[in-house]
Amino acid sequence: MSRKRHIFSFIIGLGCVCTMQAQQQTVIDDHGKTVEVMIPDADGALSGYVSVDYSDDKFYANGSSQRNNMNADAENGMEEIDRKIRNLSNVMSLTYNDEVKKYIDRYTKAGRQSTCYLLGRARYYNRFFEDALRTYGLPMELKYLPVIESGLNPNATSRVGAAGLWQFMTTTGKQYNLRIDDYIDERRDPEKSSYAAARMLSDLYQRFGDWTLALAAYNCGPTRVSNAISKAGGASDFWAVYQYLPKETRGYVPAFIAVNYVMNYYADYNIQPLSTGLPVRCDTVVVEKDVRLGKIADVLGMEIADLKILNPQYRQDLIKAFSTDGTVKLRLPAEMIERFNYNKELIYQDKPSFEVPVMTVTATTAIGSQGHTGSHQGLLMR
């Protein structure tokens, strides 16, 4: 199996190890090197981490300062970060303080290797987030919320049952028209869950009129935020009600601000995206009859694990061709769409299909230029 196949198949295993505490994952990078990736609890001790001193100047001043100038330049560096954070959005009020700094340090120091993988995964998943946010007229900065919710892992499941990229509870998912039954869990569907999340965030903003409060409500629920506002004497933003919020929610907005900064300015810290093996382009086909994923993979010459990574919403090997809206879709690499349509008769027949060579899905490559969990189970969690 190729190195890209190792990386591609790694993602499907994330759901098996995702917990609320610090977690260790073994992955293989683009050079075939085995890497231990830790996902820490940002509010807890970094137990389990290899002690690494990231004191090199380039992580703080783009390689232009000398080490003995770091203390003298610290204040200017903080002012520069504050300026960059404030300029990230014209709609959302993003501010820099000690709480935000704590999370930035987690992403850029102890968790920097995990940040490389998050950046790689974001290249695939951001398109789903952006389309949904654009549909509801919401700020594009919200596309980074799944980073702290799930670590961009659609198979993430919290200990209280929240699932998917946006970490919907079952009741809330159904409230926003996500189908959840024995065969399918649309909380794990990157496209449908993103539209549900965008609608929910829109509802929360309409209620509170402030994005920091809407984000807090996404994490702990609107009732708790309303109670915090009352205790704070009618305050109208997150920082004014901070002390009255649950402990986990106090870190939620700072983590969100930090991830927006890091996902935009990661190159300042000598961090680069790594390939995840996810395809460059995908499209969907409509499934017209009951069919097994194994049969589709066999006919198309794909690994079934690759097919499941692109379609994490299917709970079993069997896809049932029924839906409340009349369609069931399957997501495939763009180059497989024509092959699926050409081989429909073979795919839907009951007899075993012929043997075909396995094809490797075209994978993304790491990019070198700057670009661009409710529970949160991402790189930085409560």
Rank of each mutant, 00 (worst) to 15 (best):
T249L: 07
Q243K: 10
G209H: 11
G221I: 08
T212Y: 01
K192Q: 12
L201R: 03
W211M: 05
A232D: 00
A216T: 11
G209N: 05
R224V: 01
N227H: 10
L204C: 07
A228L: 08
E248G: 08
F208I: 07
V241L: 09
G221M: 03
A214K: 00
G221E: 00
Y195V: 06
A240M: 12
D203L: 01
K192R: 15
V241A: 01
G233E: 12
G234Y: 06
C220Q: 02
W239E: 11
Y242M: 04
V225P: 08
L213N: 07
E248F: 07
P190G: 04
Y242G: 00
G209R: 10
R199Q: 15
R224G: 03
A217Y: 00
E191Y: 05
M200R: 14
A228I: 04
R250Q: 15
A198T: 07
K231I: 13
A228Y: 05
S230Q: 15
F208L: 09
G221K: 08
Y195H: 14
A228G: 11
P246I: 11
C220M: 06
A197M: 04
A235L: 07
K231T: 12
A216Q: 03
S193C: 09
G233K: 11
S230F: 09
T212E: 03
V225S: 03
G233A: 13
Q243R: 15
L213M: 12
N227G: 04
Y195T: 09
D189Q: 11
T223I: 13
S230I: 15
D203Q: 02
K231S: 14
G233H: 13
F208T: 08
L201V: 07
D210A: 09
P222L: 08
S193M: 05
D203G: 05
A197C: 13
R199C: 07
Y244I: 02
D189H: 13
A240T: 14
G234D: 05
N219G: 08
R199L: 14
P190E: 12
A217S: 15
L215R: 02
D210F: 04
I229L: 10
R207L: 10
P190A: 13
A232P: 01
R199H: 12
P222V: 06
D237Q: 12
K247H: 09
L204W: 00
T249N: 11
Y195F: 15
K247V: 15
N219H: 15
L213Q: 08
T249H: 05
S226R: 14
D237M: 02
D237A: 08
L201Y: 00
W239C: 08
S230A: 15
G209K: 06
R199P: 02
D203S: 12
L201A: 09
L201C: 10
L213F: 09
A196Y: 03
W211P: 01
K247F: 13
A214P: 10
F208Y: 09
L204M: 04
Y205P: 03
E191R: 15
C220R: 03
F238P: 10
L213C: 09
G233T: 12
K247R: 15
A214H: 04
S236I: 10
Y195W: 06
P246L: 11
